[in-house]
Design a protein around this nucleic acid. Structure first.
Lengths: 198, 198
DNA sequence: CACTTTCCGATGCACTTGCATCATATCCCT
DNA sequence: AGGGATATGATGCAAGTGCATCGGAAAGTG
């Protein structure tokens, strides 16, 4: 049997390089050569991993979508059981809003892709169902809050989830655009969650 | 005196072409040649109007920022005087969220620029103070609502304006990404405004 | 150690990019 | 009408683009 290589690992490595480049200098600055250099592999390797540039970008998007989702669930799981539903909600949403410094990169990348949604249908599809998943997550948290009686029964979890997701994404935009600091954004988010509690 | 040309008009024409191109196929698809073709002028004309491509993009961004702001104020002014503050708020916000079909182009362009904010400082500056202006507008509307006693006095107009703006921008993202229909988004916005009224 | 099979990375290629150049056409003022 | 300033658009150019190609390096098996 011939030489074998861990393609998946390399793909991930390349995806990270793509994200770094996008975050640093925008999406149009992403060229195969630059990606190869950033990932510290040869251009040939990149071409072997992805048949086309678009495929590469798509994979990068799926990659960060997955990471965002995972981190959110992880944060929920990590919270020790007897936690107030409201703080759970706040934490999760602030994770989704990509506010902290380390998530900044992901926020840039995410918005760059949103900006390209009209251009690529497959890309838009990934965005769509990532949002659907996140919505379900938030809705579930709200129901949980209703079970613990922190959140009034008369509120519609699906509706409230839509609002909260919108606020979170709006804040992402505002932070990336430099209009809000992460702290301010967090405060806005907090107030929005608190409003559910009465 | 020699030949004279209405540069401002041409610049606007070119800016519109830029926006159309961005909305149709993303920001990286914008080349001087394509812009010239779309605006139906020669490439030389484009180069005379803007010294560099970046300058052209910046102008285009300022252009649509101005248009969004103007349309919002226009909608307020057009509303006959004895209008409920709440409907005024809803109308203005839905305008800002760029929900309707005709604003779709502007929404795409706007988000494309947000995606490039990290890359260009001057660009980010425009975004920042456009948001500042919009915030002031919304805050003013909320105060007006408090004057007419539709909105409780104990609410902080600045804070509420932040929340509402965030929701509006979040919905813009969701609509552009194809996750929400404009109608759904409008409903979310409506509910968010209604919540202020008690 | 050879050998087969997979992988690599340099190079080539056709094309596009943003910007500079310049002869020509265009217009206003005297 | 004509002179002189200005705008114009075709063309040139170097750099960069995505993708295709291919000789040879590398690795697991006999």
């Amino acid at each position: 049997m011939p030489k074998q290589v861990d393609y998946e690992a390399r793909r991930l490595r390349i995806a990270d390089a793509v994200c770094a480049l996008i975050a640093r200098s925008g999406m149009e600055a992403v060229s195969l050569r630059d990606v190869a250099a950033e990932a510290d592999v040869s251009m040939g390797a990149v071409q072997r991993c992805f048949r086309t540039k678009e495929e590469m970008l798509l994979f990068a998007l799926e990659h960060i979508s997955r990471r965002v989702g995972e981190r959110a669930e992880e944060r929920i799981a990590a919270t020790s059981a007897p936690q107030a539903a409201s703080t759970l909600l706040t934490h999760t949403l602030s994770e989704l809003a990509l506010l902290d410094e380390e998530s900044r990169t992901q926020a840039h990348v995410w918005l760059a892709f949103v900006g390209h949604a009209p251009a690529g249908e497959r890309l838009a599809a990934v965005l769509r169902d990532t949002y659907a998943k996140l919505h379900d997550l938030v809705e579930w948290l709200i129901r949980y809050g209703q079970d613990t009686e922190e959140i009034p029964q008369h509120l519609d979890p699906a509706h409230e989830a839509h609002s909260l997701l919108a606020v979170a994404d709006g804040l992402t935009v505002h932070v990336v655009a430099g209009y809000h600091s992460p702290e301010t954004a967090l405060a806005v988010l907090q107030r929005q969650v608190d409003r559910l509690l009465r």
